Amino acid sequence: MPEATGRQSIFITGAASGMGRETARLFQQQGWFIGAFDLNQAGLEALQAELGADNCLIGQLNVSDKIAYEQAINSFDAATGGLMDILFNNAGIAMRGFFDEIPFEEQMRLVQVNFVGVLNGIHTALPLLKATPNALCFTTSSSSATMGMPLIAVYSATKHAVKGLTEALSNEFRRHDIRVADVLPGLIRTGMPDDTMLAAASDTGAFRVIEAIEVAKVVWEAYQSDTLHWYVPEELAELDKAAGNNPERLRDKLARQL
């Protein structure tokens, strides 16, 4: 098993592709030890080959399975000597459609992965975070956590839950010297937005297509900061303000677009 051997360490879910993969690359380049976990074993093996077997611990993980999460954290614990500088709860799934046309079981799968998976991660990793000075608990929320978005209602609800949890724990965990923050990405070029969404995106504005590396850079910046919410791109912060100041106006604007 690879070992951190004194290096700072980050545990990343959804690490086989997209934002998680770019974050693993960036942190390894900065000399960190990487824990990369995902359901995609082939993607993990490709990442490990790129980063080097001594720099990266990989493992398959369904984040909605608490027992499997405990096993993953135990392996990371053994590799780092019980330390974790960053927990990056990044794994997530999405699906589009009208609420009343998506099977209930699929909606519950969204909840289990996108929110229960985050709870599993924080609960399980907390002893390592507590043992590490100035640790960071960081989670991928979404621009859809600024205002409930049509056609992704349950996805949007899970990301609102993540945002609220982040805000609450950012105060609670101060007593453990653990910082808590999240990122609210817009339209990121990953496997999640389909080709139709990417093709329809504007070249400018808050919902232009952003490369996944930009989210990875935010994770790096967040470790050096005490900022609570990170927006990618930054213009999304204005959407958050608009939703708080006049939700009816933003609701009606979304209705016209729908």
Rank of each mutant, 00 (worst) to 15 (best):
A200P: 04
D195N: 11
P193V: 12
L228P: 03
F173V: 13
Q224Y: 02
D226S: 14
W230V: 03
H176L: 15
L236Y: 04
D203V: 01
V183K: 00
F173C: 14
F173P: 09
E167T: 06
L187Y: 10
Q224K: 14
F173A: 11
A200C: 07
W220D: 08
R208C: 12
E235H: 01
N171R: 10
S225D: 15
Q224P: 01
K217H: 08
D195Y: 00
I188R: 03
L165C: 02
S170A: 14
L184W: 04
H229L: 12
N171T: 10
A237R: 15
A168K: 00
D182Q: 08
G205H: 08
F207C: 07
R179S: 13
L236S: 10
I210D: 08
I188V: 15
D182V: 02
S202K: 13
V180T: 13
L187I: 14
A206Y: 04
S170R: 12
P185F: 09
E211T: 05
S170F: 05
I188W: 01
T227K: 15
F173G: 10
I213P: 00
T204N: 13
T166K: 05
R174N: 14
V180P: 02
T196H: 03
Y231M: 04
V180A: 05
Y223F: 13
R179K: 15
E172S: 12
E167Q: 12
I178K: 05
Y223Q: 13
T166A: 03
E234R: 12
K163L: 11
E172G: 07
V219A: 13
I213Q: 11
L165V: 02
D182H: 10
G205I: 08
P185A: 13
E172Q: 14
D203R: 09
T190D: 08
M192Q: 08
A168E: 11
T204V: 10
N171L: 10
L169E: 10
V218M: 04
L169G: 08
V215W: 02
I213F: 01
E172N: 11
W230H: 14
V218Q: 04
E235L: 08
F207V: 09
Q224I: 01
D182G: 05
L228K: 07
S170E: 05
E214L: 02
V183D: 00
T227M: 05
W220R: 09
M197N: 07
L165Q: 02
N171G: 09
D195P: 01
G164L: 07
L236R: 05
L236Q: 11
E172C: 12
V183E: 00
E221H: 06
W230Y: 15
M197L: 14
I178D: 06
G164K: 01
V183R: 00
V232F: 01
I178W: 02
V180N: 04
R174E: 15
A200N: 15
S225I: 05
W230D: 01
K163S: 14
W220Q: 13
